[in-house]
Amino acid sequence: MARPTPELIDALRRTARNLKNGAPYQWGHMGGCNCGNLAQELTKLSKDQIHRYAMQRYGDWNEQVDDYCPTSTLPVDLVISEMLSAGLMLEDIKHLEKLDDRAVLMRFPVEERFLKHNVRDDVVAYMNAWADLLEEQLLEKITLPVFNLELIDQEVVY
């Protein structure tokens, strides 16, 4: 599962909002699909740039991830590297394209877990649920300092 970073959580929410508000969505387009839309938010590249980069190598996002090389200078590998630096893991990219990460799906009622990977509303719901999950994980890591109440009650003299 992805590292819960504020950048990734925010990008997931922005992507979901953009899709809900009518951003171009086309599951068969490498820059306009589930991963492509998130990649746009994380990289600030256009859907056409992402698609063009991906077409320099064969395959969909699953195959691009399988062939990913962190030392490559292929543009699609640079896009994937930027996505990973935001907190994603390679498997997360695959799960996003198919909307099939079990931890995310468990957040839905049983009757709503059968998301269709190429339906805009399902992608929006999945990204929002994933962002909520990551935010909860991030908040669990935050520890607030414990204050000594006896010191707080004492009068401070300057």
Rank of each mutant, 00 (worst) to 15 (best):
A2V: 04
R3V: 14
R3G: 06
T5G: 06
P6Q: 13
E7L: 14
L8W: 05
D10E: 14
L12E: 02
R14D: 09
R14L: 13
R14H: 15
T15I: 10
N18P: 10
N18C: 13
K20Q: 14
K20H: 12
G22Y: 10
A23N: 06
Y25S: 01
Q26H: 09
W27T: 02
W27R: 05
W27N: 11
W27D: 07
H29F: 00
N34A: 05
N34C: 06
C35F: 10
G36N: 03
G36T: 00
N37Y: 02
N37L: 05
N37M: 08
A39Q: 08
A39F: 13
E41T: 05
T43V: 07
S46W: 00
K47V: 10
Q49D: 12
Q49S: 10
Q49K: 13
Q49Y: 06
Q49R: 10
I50L: 01
I50Q: 00
R52V: 11
Q56P: 04
Q56I: 02
R57T: 09
Y58M: 10
G59C: 06
D60T: 08
E63I: 12
E63V: 10
Q64F: 06
Q64P: 03
V65K: 05
D66Y: 08
D67V: 07
P70V: 15
T71M: 09
T71F: 13
D77T: 09
L78R: 03
I80P: 03
I80A: 03
M83A: 04
L84K: 11
S85Y: 14
S85L: 14
S85K: 15
A86K: 07
L90G: 09
L90E: 12
L90V: 08
E91S: 11
D92H: 00
I93P: 02
I93E: 02
K94V: 12
K94W: 03
K94S: 05
H95I: 07
H95P: 04
L96M: 13
L99G: 04
D100L: 02
D101A: 00
R102S: 04
A103E: 01
L105F: 01
M106V: 07
F108P: 00
F108W: 05
